[in-house]
């Protein structure tokens, strides 16, 4: 018991890392399941980065659609990234973070396009921002924001 009290900050650190690992990987798995499920539902909605040309008679309406999301990294993965920063190389723990953020942003954009009755989205662009400055800086919120935007085409 004494050792726990004497190394209090170490214990807190370990607890946070374990909590971050379990809760973080659970949340990530659940998020991926939902992403894949919704991607299948919205598979019919065409999204391209090219402009494409449409004869005026075919297009009823066109509108800008956007989708955005802010995803945060868990304590454990942040620890991994800090360590990785020392040795260099691929920061694997952040790959899933940015991947989830972008796919979620695209999905939300598609969902908003579907609500408007669009058939396809052209000229889609993606942007990322970091709200908490850096995702692994101490005392700031480590997160990634992804924005997807494009032009939704509602056909006749």
């Amino acid at each position: 018991m004494d050792i726990l009290l004497q190394n209090f900050d170490l214990v807190i650190f370990l607890l946070l890392a374990i909590l971050g690992y379990t809760a973080g990987s659970l949340a990530e798995k659940r998020h991926y399941r939902s992403i894949i499920k919704r991607e299948k539902e919205l598979l019919k909605m065409a999204v391209i980065t090219a402009e494409g040309s449409f004869p005026p008679s075919k297009v009823k309406e066109s509108a800008l659609v956007t989708g955005s999301v802010v995803v945060s990294i868990d304590y454990f993965k942040r620890l991994l990234a800090i360590l990785r920063n020392i040795f260099g190389g691929r920061v694997k723990s952040y790959e899933s973070l940015v991947d989830r953020a972008r796919r979620e942003a695209i999905l939300r954009m598609k969902e908003s396009a579907k609500k408007q009755g669009a058939n396809m989205i052209i000229n889609m662009r993606l942007e990322t921002a970091t709200i908490g400055r850096n995702a692994n800086k101490k005392k700031t919120v480590g997160s990634v924001e992804a924005i997807a935007y494009g032009t939704a085409i509602i056909m006749n």
Binding site: F76, L79, L80, K92
Partner: peptide, 10 residues
């Protein structure tokens, strides 16, 4: 997304 277990990386 790289397919390696985070604990092994740790």
């Amino acid at each position: 997304v790289s397919k390696s277990h985070p604990l092994i990386e740790l």
